[in-house]
Structure formats: structure tokens, C-alpha cells
Write a protein that binds this DNA or RNA. Structure first.
Length: 412
RNA sequence: CGGGCCGGAGUAUGCCGGUAGUACGCCUGCUUUGGGAGCAGAUAGACCGAGUUCGAUUCUCGGCGGCCCGACCA
């Protein structure tokens, strides 16, 4: 798209009320707008990036048999009472409200209960299992303290997948596949090298849950990393006993700060039993369904990518999640030879299906370059006098700063 | 939820118990055009309420809001 048509505007200074790198840069670059503490709107550029993150996760969830759906934000109090997760002294971060007609409701903090109930209408035989269902949906959590920009909000996008299996063995097999899918997701998102499967507290049905932790000073968690085995242990469970169970040596571990970008865990029959989700097996015996849950917060992931990859000049996006692949920067102005050359290249790029943001505005070169650096689009193509005279375009790699000259044909 | 810092224009600030000034930004025009240019013009501000006072942006109290540390984080 033409940048002259983009309604967002980059800012030179960071807003006074943001401290985190991700929020400062995303606000400056016009990707997000802060509505309140921990509550952000996603503007055109930000939404493009968020949607790319979502699409990568979607593809990997589909690849392991996930079926996409979407559930309601408004929650049924009675349902949550049945699993004892409605009362404020049990779960303290509900946003609760009431119906005009009477009765209470709350905005969804997670979706085990409604999905389990839905499944009771569709699962009754071993032949109906296993089932894997997921959604992307805004979650609402009344956090006492929002922090770290878009990484810990009160309203945030979440991908939550739930698995429904016949028994622990079937669950374990899927769990392993989900782990691999998650690793693939983070690899594709450009933070794979910094992201570790991390053992964390597991709850009642398994010894450990597995977190996906991305090394960053901006992280809230402390983990101990075994670089060779590419696994880590969350500080909260890092006892000698646990290390023995996991086959890790304390001497091999390095302490790091990290951001939790995903979490997968075994739910056992915690929800299926109280909500009556069971099936009849081959012998005619009735058994509770074994469940698991698998979360990734796309908005948190977006903030994490900024924290990990941005530099002093601004955002740096991996190509897979960049709002545009090419930033075409014209140094010409209305109607001159440079702008004609730029217009032609823009038209060719669009025709070739390249996602290109075209800076066709009449601004000075320095301002355009500074803003281009801030936006973080991976490839910048500069059209100046030289391009008109020699037919060679300057192609700049945002991440490395590397500059190469390419002809029109070499670009395509 | 415990603790701390803070609240005047988009940002940074000066002065002040007598109703707000500067710089940069933003906007317009002209000039300029390869790393945030110059000139001219314009726009834009005291979080809310109560109290003290002749008078409150300034002092006091109470709200509300923001940030940070901790706690929490299905």
C-alpha cells in the first residue's frame, strides 16, 4: 500500500507512559494504540503482523489435527461453579458483570469449561476420540498489575487448543506432537533459537507442565538452561530432586531471564469428570475423557519478537511476521523521474504479489530512512537519482544493514 | 494485594498563591531534497472533586489515572 494513504503516523519520541521496549517502539511506529493500562488496540500495521503470527500458529495447529472454532467471551456462571472456578476466592481475576434480566456473567479468562461442555454433546464413544479443537480469542484477565507493554495485558489474544483423548497414553502421544508443533511455530516466528522447552510446575495430573520460554532480559521468569540438551527448568521447580528426575546436572545449567511464550499441560480428568464428559470404550465401560490444554498468546509473542530482535533504530521483523516484506522508499517527489521510476517498480511489485509498503510521500531522505528503520520492514528498496540513471536499486537489509545494488530483474 | 515514584501541549522543561512561558514535535506555505534541513505562520496544555484563600495549576485532603519492585499469573 501507499504510505501516503496509511492513516497511522510515526512519532519521533516514545510516549511518556511506556517504559518497555516493545510498547515504546510499537506505539512510536504506529502499530498499536494504548487504550488503558494493559489494553491495546492493533492499528493497520500491527494487525498485519498479528495476523501473520496467528496464521503461522493456525497452520501448525491444523497440521497436528486441530480443528478451529471460536467460543463466546461471555461465560455461564453455573458452568464455572460446577468446576469451582467462579468464586472470587478461587479465581481472583474475573471481569464480572451482570445481565439486565438478572444473573451474573463474566468475560472468559480461559475456555476449558465451555469447550468441555460442548464436547459432551459430540463425544460419547471411543470412536469419537481423539479430538483436538482450538480457537483464537481475546481473553480477559483482571490483572492487579498490567506491565511490560503488550506482553501482559488485561485483554489479550490467545490461541488455546484443547485435546480430548481416550487415555493417558493417547494423551501423551499427542502432547509430544504438540511440543514439536510449538517448536516449529517459534522457529517460523523467528525466535526459535532463543526459545527453550522448559519444565515448570505441572498441577495435579502430571509432574511437570512444559513451558516455552524465550530468553530475554525483559522476561518475568527465571529459568535454568541446559544449552546442549536445549531444555530448561523453571526456577520455581528447580530442586535437586526435580533435576534428578529430568536427568539434568546442575553444573550444566545457566541462569537466564525469559518470557513465557507458550505453555502445554496435562489436564487429566480435572474438567471431564465434574462436567460429565465421558465415553464408552470397546468393552462397553464408561470412562472419563483425558484432556490437555495448549496455549500461545499471539500478542505476547509479538511483544517478545520486538524485545528480542529490535535494535536502537527501531523494530526489526523476521520476514514471516513483518507487516510488509518490502519497504519501497522513493526519494522523488510528485511527477519527477525518480517518482515515475518508483511508481513503476511499485506497480511491478504489486503485480508480482509482493507485500510492499510504498513510501511515496514528499519527505526528506533522512526522515524517510529513520522512519523506515523504525517500522522494521525486512527489505528496503531505495529509489533515488542513481536508480534513474543506472537502473540499479539500493536494497538494504533492515536486520543486518547490508546494502546491495540490484537491477529491476534481480529484484524479482 | 503490599511497597515506591508520578500526574501542566505529542515530548522535555522554566516560573508561579494573581488563570501558563520556552524548545522540539505536529499542521500549513515557500525554499530544500541520500540520514530527522531552513524560513514564515498556525495549532495545542494544568486528571477530577472538595477544602483553605479575596483569588488555587501552585497549598491540604479525597478520588481517578499512569509507571516501577514484589506477590499473582489455569
Amino acid at each position: 500500500m501507499r504510505q501516503s494513504q496509511l492513516f497511522t503516523k510515526a512519532r519521533r519520541e516514545a510516549p511518556a507512559d511506556e517504559v518497555s521496549k516493545n510498547a515504546q517502539l510499537l506505539v512510536r511506529a504506529g502499530y498499536v494504540h494504548k487504550e488503558m493500562a494493559g489494553v491495546y488496540s492493533y492499528l493497520p500495521l500491527g494487525l498485519r503482523t498479528l495476523n501473520k503470527i496467528v496464521q503461522i500458529i493456525r497452520e501448525e495447529m491444523n497440521a497436528i489435527g486441530g480443528q478451529e472454532m471460536v467460543m463466546t467471551a461471555l461465560q455461564d456462571k453455573d458452568l464455572w461453579s460446577r468446576t469451582d472456578r467462579w468464586d472470587d476466592d478461587k479465581v481472583d481475576n474475573w471481569f464480572k458483570t451482570s445481565f439486565k434480566s438478572g444473573g451474573e456473567t463474566g468475560l472468559g479468562i480461559t475456555h476449558e469449561e465451555p469447550l468441555t461442555r460442548i464436547m459432551t454433546e459430540h463425544i460419547s464413544s471411543y470412536r469419537d476420540l481423539p479430538v483436538y479443537a482450538y480457537q483464537f480469542q481475546n481473553k480477559f484477565r483482571n490483572e492487579l498489575r498490567a506491565k511490560s507493554g503488550i506482553m501482559r495485558g488485561k485483554e489479550f489474544l490467545m490461541k488455546d487448543l484443547y485435546s480430548f483423548s481416550r487415555d493417558e497414553a493417547e494423551h501423551d502421544a499427542f502432547f509430544a506432537r504438540a511440543r514439536e508443533a510449538y517448536l516449529k511455530v517459534f522457529q517460523r516466528l523467528g525466535i526459535g533459537d532463543q526459545t527453550y522447552v522448559t519444565f515448570a510446575s505441572g498441577g495435579i495430573f502430571s509432574e511437570f507442565s512444559e513451558e516455552f520460554q524465550t530468553i530475554s532480559e525483559a522476561g518475568e521468569d527465571t529459568i535454568y538452561v541446559d544449552e546442549k540438551k536445549r531444555v530448561a527448568v523453571n526456577k520455581e521447580v528447580c530442586t535437586d530432586e526435580a533435576l534428578t528426575k529430568l536427568g539434568l546436572q546442575r553444573d550444566d545449567l545457566v541462569e537466564k531471564k525469559a518470557i513465557e511464550v507458550g505453555n502445554i499441560f496435562n489436564l487429566g480428568t480435572r474438567f471431564s469428570e465434574p462436567l460429565g464428559l465421558s465415553y464408552t470404550d470397546e468393552t462397553g465401560a464408561k470412562k472419563p475423557v483425558v484432556m490437555g490444554s495448549y496455549g500461545i498468546g499471539p500478542t505476547r509473542v509479538m511483544g517478545t519478537i520486538v524485545e528480542v530482535l529490535a535494535d536502537e533504530k527501531g523494530l526489526v521483523w523476521p520476514e514471516a511476521v513483518a507487516p510488509f516484506v518490502v519497504h519501497l522508499v522513493s526519494l522523488g517527489k510528485g511527477g519527477d523521474e525518480i517518482s515515475k521510476t518508483s511508481d513503476a517498480l511499485y506497480a511491478d511489485l504489486v503485480k508480482a504479489g509482493v507485500e510492499v509498503l510504498y513510501d511515496d510521500r514528499d519527505l526528506r531522505a533522512g526522515e524517510k530512512f529513520a522512519e523506515s528503520d523504525l517500522l522494521g520492514i525486512p527489505m528496503r528498496i531505495v529509489v533515488g537519482k542513481e536508480a534513474v540513471e543506472t537502473g540499479m536499486f539500493e536494497v538494504v537489509n533492515r536486520a543486518t544493514g547490508e546494502v546491495v545494488k540490484k537491477s529491476h530483474d534481480e529484484i524479482f
